[in-house]
C-alpha cells in the first residue's frame, strides 16, 4: 500500500472515504461548539435563531450576561493566566537546565536520573495532584495542629496548583529543549571559547540563541498545557478557581451559550499561540 504498489480503485475510494469521515469526526465537536456561541437562543441547541454577540457582550440587563460581563469567569480567566505564567517560567527554566544536564554532561547514575525525569509522564495527572495535596496540605495541617504554625502557601490554592502542573510540564519542556540541544554542534561553542569568550558568554551568545526556537516552543506548549489542565488542577485548587474548574462547575449547573463563548475564545487563543510558536520555530534555522 505504498505509492509504488498498485492499489485497486475501490480500495482507494474506501480509503478516501475513511479519511474524510475521520476529519469530520475531528472537526465536528469543535465546529458545533464555536457556532453555537453566536446563536440567539438561551440554550446551545437547534433550531438556529439568528446571529447574536450577546453571549460575549450582553451586560445582564436583558436577562443575559455575556462573557465580558461575567465576573466569575473573567476572574477565573485571570487566575488561569497567572498560574500559566508561573508554570511556564518555572518549567522552561527547569527544561533548559535539565537539557544541558542530560545532553552535555556525563556523570554516574545519569541513565537512572533520566528515567526519573520521564516518570511524571507515566503517572496519571490525578495522582500527581493527589500526592502533592497529601504531602503539602497534610504538612500544613500537621504544623498548624502541633505547633500552631500557619503555612498557608501549602494549603490548596495557586501555589499548589503551580507546583502540581510544573511536575509534569517540566518533563515535556525538557524533552523539547533537549531534542534541539542534541542537534547542536559543540564545535560552535568551542570556537567561541577559542576566540576568548568565557563559558558563560559562549553560552549566552552561541548556545542560547540556537536553543531559542525550542525554548519558545516549549513555553507556548507549557502555557497551553497549564491553561487547559483539569485533572491535576482540580485536586489542588483553593478559593480562586482557574478557568477549567470554573467552566466545569458551570457546566454541571447546565449549559448556556456563554460556555460556548468561552470555549471559542480558548480555541482562538490557543490557535494563535500555537501558530506563533510554530512560525517562530520555522522562521529560524
Amino acid at each position: 500500500m505504498i505509492r509504488s504498489v498498485p492499489r485497486s480503485r475501490w480500495f482507494d475510494g474506501l480509503y478516501l472515504a475513511y479519511l474524510v469521515a475521520f476529519f469530520i469526526y475531528l472537526a465536528l465537536p469543535l465546529t458545533v461548539t464555536a457556532v453555537f456561541a453566536f446563536n440567539d437562543a438561551p440554550f446551545p441547541s437547534l433550531p438556529w435563531k439568528g446571529f447574536t454577540l450577546d453571549w460575549y457582550l450582553a451586560d445582564g440587563s436583558a436577562g443575559r450576561t455575556g462573557l465580558f460581563h461575567d465576573d466569575t469567569l473573567l476572574s477565573a480567566l485571570w487566575t488561569s493566566t497567572r498560574i500559566a505564567f508561573w508554570v511556564t517560567l518555572v518549567s522552561v527554566a527547569l527544561g533548559c537546565v535539565n537539557a544541558v544536564l542530560f545532553e552535555r554532561l556525563e556523570f554516574r547514575g545519569k541513565e537512572f536520573l533520566y528515567l526519573l525525569m520521564l516518570l511524571p509522564l507515566v503517572i496519571p495527572g490525578v495522582i500527581l495532584g493527589v500526592s502533592i495535596l497529601v504531602f503539602y496540605s497534610g504538612m500544613a495541617n500537621d504544623l498548624s495542629r502541633t505547633w500552631g504554625i500557619e503555612l498557608d502557601v501549602f494549603r490548596p490554592g495557586m501555589t499548589l496548583v503551580v507546583m502540581g502542573q510544573v511536575t509534569f510540564i517540566a518533563t515535556l519542556a525538557t524533552l523539547v529543549i533537549a531534542a534541539r540541544l542534541r542537534k547542536f554542534d559543540p564545535q560552535l561553542e568551542e570556537a567561541a571559547l577559542n576566540l576568548g569568550a568565557t563559558p558563560l558568554v559562549a553560552w549566552f551568545t552561541v548556545t542560547l540563541p540556537w536553543l531559542m526556537p525550542s525554548i519558545l516552543g516549549a513555553a507556548a506548549m507549557a502555557f497551553l498545557m497549564s491553561f487547559e489542565n483539569f485533572n491535576t488542577t482540580v485536586m489542588l485548587t483553593g478559593s480562586d478557581t482557574p478557568l477549567t474548574v470554573a467552566l466545569f462547575n458551570r457546566l454541571r449547573e447546565g449549559s448556556t451559550p456563554v460556555l460556548n463563548a468561552v470555549a471559542l475564545l480558548l480555541m482562538v487563543g490557543s490557535a494563535i499561540l500555537a501558530v506563533l510558536a510554530m512560525g517562530r520555530s520555522r522562521g529560524k534555522p
Binding site: 461548539t33 491553561f227 477549567t244 466545569f248 457546566l251 460556555l259 480558548l266 500555537a274
Partner: peptide, 13 residues
C-alpha cells in the same frame, strides 16, 4: 487542531 482546545471544550462539543 482539536488539541488546541482543552479536554473540557472537546467534551462539551
Amino acid at each position: 487542531i482539536p488539541f488546541w482546545a482543552s479536554e473540557l471544550v472537546r467534551t462539551y462539543g
